[in-house]
Design a protein around this nucleic acid. Structure first.
Length: 477
RNA sequence: UCCGGAGUAGCUCAGUGGUAGAGCGAUCGGCUGUUAACCGAUUGGUCGUAGGUUCGAGUCCUACCUCCGGAGCCA
């Protein structure tokens, strides 16, 4: 504990608050903590209570500063919400309720003052999520965004750990792409052309030959087609990266920039794919239950009281499997009045999905073999001539959480679909090559990472589970 | 993009044609081993913007902007 006796040398020895609160530092130990003040309360008994958080865990630590500290008048009594401080103190059992240990201050240093407390946007009170979005640079200091951030991190780590432990390789698929016909929504254009003075070809079209890549280029809407190439070489692969959609979607479950997880497995069929999805969801949510109990208890108390039991139930229950055809029949026979009547050949509506998973089976369900006409060109055609080997995993409380399929590995069948759907075959030459050279049955799925976080936390708006939300007319911070 | 709702003090909201309010915050004081403390005082607003109706508009009308919810699209 070299240097601790000199307040000016405190920073190199700082201890994370979580270690103090969890007892990693024994009672009597002298530690330095660094963080931001949440609240200060003064007692006429000659001491002040300063709550300090550093993001290392949900809780703040209570610093007890006695009035005989040299800097009491000048520093301690000037502390307020948001001040950055460094505190040297000894770990002591708390005399009050609400915490088992606290820090008896030996020295307090004001590292960064709050210039004008009356304009500091983070008041010591509950704020609306809408307001917090307007102060996106300061909202990480709140309980709720801090908790979301730690949950997000833990789930990210669990994703990578899950795949790594099972022999999957993480493939960094490209962010910029020239594939303009993946059929997954509007794309953002990437260009270095001068918008005010676009080069033209002889027939008046924009001359993309003069653009940076010499072709029309976009931000990716999915890494799937790219990751399939690595799947057909390294067998088990996945992507986990940003994805972009230029749809004008103004809802609480859409972002223009979000993170997607897409595993792809070779020598595998749809049943293998569903089994992987089930293992995957159970694994990452079990990790969350194990590692972020403090934050989950916060969500259960203040955001969604069902969130922990929902996770526990998902982790423990076996997923139901049901064909799309049977699902439609069950919906039609349910007698329940839906806004949209369930009909074979139409996609399942949100209300249908929730009814199936919440009321018909009461646990997660994988719906299999959808009509080919409502699914993408690359999905494997079933022998019935009507359906493809697609699957959606539906979960209580949210509906669709995963969508995937076995891929069409037969070149003639793939080409037939490309032609039927009027897609430009030349764009898919490299994708078709995978079917010409050592083709293999393979399958995969996609999971919107932010939607998984919504599910785990009970947060309502997807803009609050990503650090910097990008959505139509929203790109601040 | 379509449908619905909402923009009033730093924040959350009340105010339904006649002199702009409360709680919280902030500031000051009191009290207390305190827990987003408690008690008192002070501070605080071109009522989203632009037009219009009216003797008079926060309130009624029109347009626009922004946000929220639902739908569509999807992850």
């Amino acid at each position: 504990m070299r240097g601790l006796l000199n307040p000016r040398a405190m920073s190199k020895e700082a201890t994370r608050i979580v270690e103090v609160l969890r007892g990693a530092q024994p009672v009597g130990a002298e530690v330095v903590i660094e963080g931001w003040v949440r609240t200060r309360r003064d007692s006429k008994a000659g001491l002040s209570f300063v709550n300090v958080h550093d993001g290392s865990c949900f809780d703040a630590i209570q610093v007890v500063a006695a009035s005989d500290l040299a800097e009491y008048e000048e520093v301690v009594l000037a502390l307020g919400a948001g001040c950055a401080v460094r505190v040297r103190g000894s770990v002591v059992p708390s005399q009050g309720k609400g915490q088992s240990v606290e820090l008896k201050a030996l020295a307090i240093e004001l590292v960064g003052d709050v210039e004008s407390p009356e304009t500091y946007p983070m008041q010591p009170k509950r704020h609306s999520m809408e307001y917090l979005r307007e102060v996106g640079h300061l909202r990480p200091r709140t309980n709720v965004i801090g908790a979301v951030t730690r949950v997000r991190h833990t789930l990210s780590q669990a994703v990578h750990r899950f795949f790594h432990e099972r022999g999957f390789y993480w493939i960094h698929t490209p962010i910029i792409t020239a594939s303009d016909a993946e059929g997954a929504g509007q794309m953002f254009r990437v260009s270095t052309l001068d918008l005010a003075n676009l080069p033209r070809t002889k027939d008046g079209a924009v001359d993309f030959d003069q653009d940076f890549f010499g072709k029309e280029s976009f931000l990716t809407v999915s890494g799937q087609l790219n990751v399939e190439t690595y799947c057909c070489a390294l067998s088990k692969v996945y992507t986990f990266g940003p994805t972009f959609r230029a749809e004008n979607s103004n809802t609480r479950r859409h972002l223009a920039e979000f993170w997607m997880i897409e595993p792809e497995i070779a020598f595998a069929d749809l049943a293998d794919d569903v089994a992987l999805a089930e293992d995957f969801l159970k694994s990452i949510f079990r990790a969350l239950l194990d590692e972020r109990d403090d934050d989950l208890r916060f969500f259960a108390s203040f955001v969604d009281k069902e969130c922990i039991t929902r996770l526990e139930k998902l982790v423990e229950s076996d997923f139901e499997r049901m064909s799309y055809t049977e699902a439609v029949e069950r919906l039609q026979k349910s007698g329940k009045k839906f806004e949209f009547e369930p009909r074979w050949g139409a996609d399942l509506q949100s209300e249908h999905e929730r009814y199936l998973t919440e009321e018909v089976v009461g646990r997660p369900i994988a719906v299999l073999d959808y009509p080919k006409d409502i699914k993408a060109f690359y999905m494997r055609q079933n022998d019935d001539g009507k359906t493809v080997a697609a699957m959606d995993v539906l979960a209580p409380g949210i509906g669709e959480i995963i969508g995937g399929s076995q891929r069409e590995e037969r070149l003639d069948r793939l080409d037939a679909r490309i032609d039927e759907m009027g897609l430009p075959k030349d764009h898919y030459d490299w994708y078709r090559d995978l079917r010409r050279y050592g083709t293999v049955p393979h399958a995969g799925f996609g999971l919107g990472f932010e939607r998984a976080i919504l599910y785990a936390t009970g947060m309502e708006n997807i803009r609050d589970v990503i650090p910097f939300p990008r959505a139509p007319r929203q790109i601040d911070f």
